[in-house]
Amino acid sequence: MSDTLRPINRPRLYEQVVASLRDYVSSSGLRTGDRLPPERELAERLGVSRASVKQAIVVLEVQGLVEVRHGGGSYLLRDTLDTEPVAALVERRRRLPDVLEAREAMETKLAELAAERRTSVDLEAIEAALRHMSAEIEAGGIGMEGDRRFHAAVTAAARSSLLAEFMGMIAEQITESRAESLRQQGRPRRSLEQHRRIAAAIRAGDGPRAVSAMRRHVRTVSRVRLLTWEPADED
């Protein structure tokens, strides 16, 4: 029999709720900081169960689009609810632990080598990255470019061509992990402070302290909402 007759994949009900919420936010003119209607009201208006609404809200929370305040409702963190497909979230959730494991192994060594080999030019590049990230955050951003520049400057200061090559090979996955971390509430400023501690250790030429500071930072990066999310198979 021809394999063209395959099961049809239908959007899960909570994915349809996500799409409805996206359209609602767009049409109603809601903006960052505004509160979504209560889950019970959403369930009634959409004609679905509260469980489906709750699953949809969790998907939005995982993507850093809403903040759920226990007992206080759900609030927009962006002006829109432009979401990724759930399948993309599931795939990123699958590979993220391996990426973070690789980052910890390589970046702690890079920090140690940077403390031993850095030059005045390297230190200025590191400081410039810190200033850039601080400016991004003060302007209301999450510091993505400053974060990238900081880790790139540490990698350059380590002067290890092979480790730099390995970092380049997983650059796309590192960018994913960076975005996942920095969109957590309060994370940009915390990451900036951790970067400053890493930079201080490198500046002081203290390899063990640089290793410890970098390890603490990467483990903070690993604490993201996505990794505690359990995708619902069905409603």
Rank of each mutant, 00 (worst) to 15 (best):
L5V: 13
L5F: 12
L5N: 08
L5I: 12
P7C: 06
P7A: 08
P7K: 03
I8Y: 07
R10W: 12
R12S: 06
R12D: 08
L13S: 07
E15R: 01
E15L: 02
E15I: 00
E15Q: 05
V17K: 09
V17I: 10
V18S: 09
V18F: 05
A19G: 05
A19P: 00
A19K: 06
A19N: 06
A19R: 07
S20P: 00
S20H: 07
S20D: 08
L21D: 02
R22L: 04
Y24D: 00
V25F: 01
S26Y: 08
S28W: 00
G29E: 07
L30M: 11
L30A: 02
L30G: 00
L30S: 01
L30Q: 03
L30N: 00
R31I: 09
R31T: 09
R31C: 05
R31E: 08
G33P: 04
D34I: 06
R35E: 10
R35Y: 00
L36C: 05
P37I: 07
P37L: 14
P37V: 07
P38S: 08
E39I: 10
E39F: 02
E39V: 13
E39N: 09
R40N: 07
R40S: 11
E41W: 07
L42Q: 10
L42G: 03
A43N: 06
E44S: 13
R45Q: 12
R45F: 00
L46R: 14
G47E: 14
V48A: 11
V48R: 08
S49W: 03
R50P: 04
R50D: 09
R50S: 13
R50Q: 15
S52R: 02
V53I: 15
V53W: 01
K54F: 02
K54C: 05
Q55H: 15
A56Y: 06
I57N: 10
I57T: 13
I57S: 11
I57L: 15
I57Y: 05
V58T: 15
V58M: 12
V58Q: 15
V59I: 12
L60P: 05
L60R: 07
E61L: 09
V62R: 10
V62T: 15
Q63K: 03
Q63H: 05
